[in-house]
Design a protein around this nucleic acid. Structure first.
Length: 142
DNA sequence: GCCAACGTTGGC
DNA sequence: GCCAACGTTGGC
């Protein structure tokens, strides 16, 4: 069981949209580093949904209802290492955050100093180490 | 609105 | 295969 963090621009797709849809394919990720992480996403994993843009806060947590599978839009494309290059996974809403776990709050805690969200601001899919997972849940009231 | 950090593209 | 130019993301 791994916990992930998924970034989204709420104007494009927000946690509220996920609640409305009840389930969605997490697509639109082209970045190779993010795709590398996505291949490891399994059914039963959980994922914080983080809103970028003006919000910069955790909006809620989602459940992975279908683990990584090949994106039919890019079928047959492989990486140099022979992995499926483009995968998708499906998520369903979990709980909405009671309190926003803001980026400012995250940055204020030295434990997050090496976290990808802080270190590599452009990465859109990243694993959350267990210690940070617990802290984030506390911050967001999840 | 700006710009740093990073990815991608295309000419060589 | 390198790298300069260009495009994009996301925090500020």
């Amino acid at each position: 069981m791994t916990t992930w963090l998924l970034k989204t621009e709420p104007d494009d797709y927000s946690y509220t949209d996920l609640i409305r849809d009840k389930r969605t394919e997490w697509d639109g990720v082209a970045n190779p580093a993010a795709q590398k992480h996505m291949r490891d996403i399994k059914k039963g994993d959980e994922a914080f949904i983080y809103h970028t843009g003006a919000e910069r806060a955790i909006a809620g947590i989602a459940k992975v209802v279908r683990g990584a599978y090949e994106d039919p839009a890019h079928e047959g494309v492989r990486t140099a290492a022979g992995d499926v290059k483009f995968t998708l996974f499906d998520v369903a809403p979990g709980k909405a955050a009671k309190t926003p776990g803001t980026l400012a709050e995250i940055k204020a805690d030295p434990a997050f100093k090496d976290f990808d969200l802080v270190r590599q601001s452009r990465l859109s899919v990243m694993p959350v180490p267990p210690k940070l997972d617990a802290k984030l849940r506390k911050m967001a009231g999840l």
